[in-house]
């Protein structure tokens, strides 16, 4: 049974003591029937952050400069969605490359390594903030383990499945898609990682493993890097990904 104890044991029951049990917006008081000014504006600011994140742009220039450190070619690509408005209404266009990008990929030398794809998704802000930190943790481990890496791809107006087309074009045997997640009211900068073995167009989400809520206040970046590295290893070892590959890392660590 649930037991909620009142801290001071007094008879003065204020609702605010319930706030310790949940991050829900309880105990915010009221002005008449309405939400008081301060919490009303706090809510509005949280929504503003989420909205700004949806419309944020991926800083491809900064990312391209910084990605040089990994000594891999960097390809800047774009989906068929020409702007945010179209991106939001036509997920199909966000899942497929524009002509210029397709041509650029066709010119690449293929290898059967791991391709890392970075896409803005629904929060470019999440990518601008988190992706380099994550790659600094992840790429050295992949190279140390002897994995071959394909060029890093930066995709504007991209959705998860666009990675299948890119990976297939590059002949990659595995894809790591790092993408901005749909912003929540208190998490405008959350990044997701979608891992796919033998990516090819037409796959659905059950063929992928997802590590989500990657951000400082959520799944911390070092933990996320561990998890992604583990899943890549397992996936390549067992030659599959998705619902058939369970995250048993916690269990394995204990053995």
């Amino acid at each position: 049974m649930v037991e909620i104890e009142k801290a001071d044991g007094s008879e003065d029951y204020q609702i605010s003591f319930l706030r310790q049990f949940t991050s829900a917006r309880i105990g915010i008081g009221s002005s008449g029937a309405a939400i008081p000014t301060k919490p009303a504006l706090e809510f509005k600011m949280a929504h503003a952050h989420a909205r700004d994140a949806v419309y944020s742009r991926m800083d491809t220039e900064m990312l391209t400069d910084e990605l040089i450190q990994f000594k891999l070619p960097v390809l800047a690509l774009h989906s068929k969605a020409t702007n945010r408005e179209q991106y939001l209404q036509r997920p199909d266009m966000g899942r497929s490359l524009d002509e210029l990008s397709s041509n650029r990929l066709a010119d690449q030398i293929t290898n059967n390594g791991i391709v890392i794809i970075i896409a803005d998704g629904l929060s470019a802000a999440a990518i601008n903030k988190n992706v380099l930190v994550l790659l600094k943790l992840l790429i050295p481990r992949l190279t140390d383990a002897g994995y071959k890496l394909a060029p890093i791809c930066l995709v504007e107006q991209g959705r998860v499945a666009i990675g299948d087309e890119i990976a297939a074009e590059l002949g990659a045997s595995f894809s790591v898609m790092l993408i901005g997640e749909r912003p929540g009211l208190s998490s405008a900068d959350s990044m997701g990682a979608y891992l796919t073995y033998q990516p090819k167009p037409g796959l659905t989400d059950d063929a992928r493993n997802c590590v989500s809520n990657i951000r400082t206040e959520g799944l911390a970046l070092p933990t996320a890097a561990d998890k992604i590295f583990y899943l890549i290893q397992e996936s390549l070892k067992r030659k599959l990904s998705g619902v058939w590959l369970k995250d048993n890392q916690g269990l394995l660590n204990k053995l």
Partner: peptide
């Protein structure tokens, strides 16, 4: 509570 569903991550109507 406060229009913010912290489980489903969307905004609906508040108690208010």
């Amino acid at each position: 509570p406060g229009s913010d569903d912290i489980m489903l991550n969307y905004q609906s109507t508040s108690f208010h």
